[in-house]
């Protein structure tokens, strides 16, 4: 992508400098994969490998959860972030899994991520935060913004053209469509979705909000739920996962993207987002780390339905 040519050059230069100077011990970014339409995660510790870094409209992976590998390490790591990725970093900061001293956040302009066929990903069309919500440095002229905003930086025009954020207003469409169904239809729909789950936990592994040291779905000892992929246990997993990230999900959509069984996980996350906003007021997780997530606080005059 020609708009990003200079950004790519700058990324490599910056990564090299950061590693050579010892400012950081490692850099998270992307590299070109085996196909032109594949840009996959890359972690480098060696300045000589900085030239492998690449960033384009296929660099969809949110790398923030990878920072968890170093959560008990004092050394600093640099990470390149798009808007959605930056909210993952804020998630980890707010959850105190990393400290600001452990991470150097470099914001990038997002051209809008596309699939192999070149069409814009739904999550990008629905994106409200295409710009980093926080960054220590930026490349490509992108502006840091904690407010929903239009794409900025060198790819602003390209992003606008492909329609980044153009369907932000319709992001609850799938939720609304399901809400319109009868109870029996909803039950059948979700039973079908839950039955597909193979409990690979890819959704959890990629999620910056799923940052527990020990996930309750890994520990047998307590016996919350069977590891067998039965309808019952899968439903327990799906609902519990959703409740655990309720009010904390940063809306990056990675869970749904990585799901090998195409389970509409974001529909559940969005449903919770929608209800949280309606019940407890506007809240965007992973934007401002000083605002406690909605389930960790309360108002004495919250809606009352349990009388």
């Amino acid at each position: 992508m020609k708009e990003l040519h200079n950004v790519n050059v700058a990324m490599r230069t910056l990564a090299r400098e950061l590693l050579e100077s010892g400012t950081v011990a490692g850099v998270y970014g992307w590299k070109k994969g085996s196909r032109p339409t594949l840009t996959s995660p890359l972690y480098i510790q060696d300045a000589a490998k900085a030239d492998r870094l690449a960033y384009d409209q296929y660099a969809v992976s949110n790398l923030s959860a990878l920072l968890l590998d170093h959560r008990n390490n004092d050394k600093k790591r640099a990470i390149f972030v798009k808007g959605c990725d930056s909210r993952g970093v804020v998630r980890l900061l707010q959850d105190q899994q990393i400290t600001p001293e452990q991470v150097l956040v470099i914001g990038l302009p997002c051209p809008g991520m596309v699939d192999e066929a070149g069409s814009l990903l739904t999550k990008c069309a629905e994106c409200r935060f295409p710009n980093p919500v926080m960054a220590d440095q930026v490349l490509g002229g992108v502006e840091v913004s904690k407010q929903p905003s239009a794409p900025t930086g060198v790819t602003a025009e390209a992003a606008r053209k492909v329609g980044v954020g153009s369907r932000a207003g319709e992001r609850m469409a799938q939720v609304a469509q399901l809400e319109g169904k009868t109870a029996a239809e909803k039950e059948a729909y979700w039973a079908e979705q839950h039955d597909k789950c193979i409990r690979c936990y890819a959704c959890r592994n990629v999620c910056p909000a799923c940052n527990c040291r020990d996930c309750i779905f890994d520990t047998e000892k307590k016996g919350w739920v069977s590891k067998a992929a039965t309808s019952s246990a899968n439903a327990f997993f799906a609902i519990t996962r959703a409740m655990h990230v309720a009010g904390r999900c940063v809306d990056c959509g990675e869970c749904e993207r990585v799901c090998p069984m195409d389970i509409p996980i974001m529909t559940v996350n969005r449903k919770l987002q929608q209800d949280i906003e309606a019940l407890f007021g506007p809240y965007d997780a992973g934007v401002d780390e000083t605002v406690v997530p909605p389930l960790g606080r309360y108002q004495t005059d919250d809606p009352e339905e349990f009388l």
């Binding site: 008990n72 959850d95 105190q96 940052n211 040291r213 520990t219 406690v292």
Partner: peptide
């Protein structure tokens, strides 16, 4: 403590300020 991530979600919810995050030495 072996399972605790130190995220502090419990700290804010405790009505008695009975929970604090404390450093733990550990071989990692």
């Amino acid at each position: 403590e072996a399972m605790c991530s130190g995220c502090g979600l419990c700290v804010t919810i405790c009505p008695y300020k009975a929970i604090t995050r404390q450093p733990k030495q550990e071989r990692i």
